[in-house]
Amino acid sequence: MEALVASAVGVLTAAGIFLILRRRTFPVILGLSLLTYAVNVFLFATGRLALDAPAVLNKYKDVPYTDPLPQALVLTAIVISFGMTAVIVMIALSAYLSSKDDHIDMTAQDSVDAPGEDA
């Protein structure tokens, strides 16, 4: 089981990073999403894996519980990463609609055209 989770985290990380290194906005957003999965699962797995042991207390008998702390951490991380994705999507969209260009890199020409520069 551990090997499955670890290899999945590895594949998600590799794919996420590869896509983050692309030069258009949309693949970068996809890459960030994949990396988010990888990081969340990674954090979750730091609490070690356990089957059938949710951290919901049982009043009637003594049962093993999994580690609740990484779960609480990851729960907020999932929600926050939604906020982050939404902001990036919005920035990418606004940039594309304003300039009709979805490259993430500024070119030398862009910096010459940039407003507000003294030159």
């Binding site: 670890a6 990380t13 590799a14 990888a38 990674f42 730091t46």
Partner: peptide
Amino acid sequence: GLGTGGLIY
């Protein structure tokens, strides 16, 4: 990817 996967493993 190898590094991250190896670490968590």
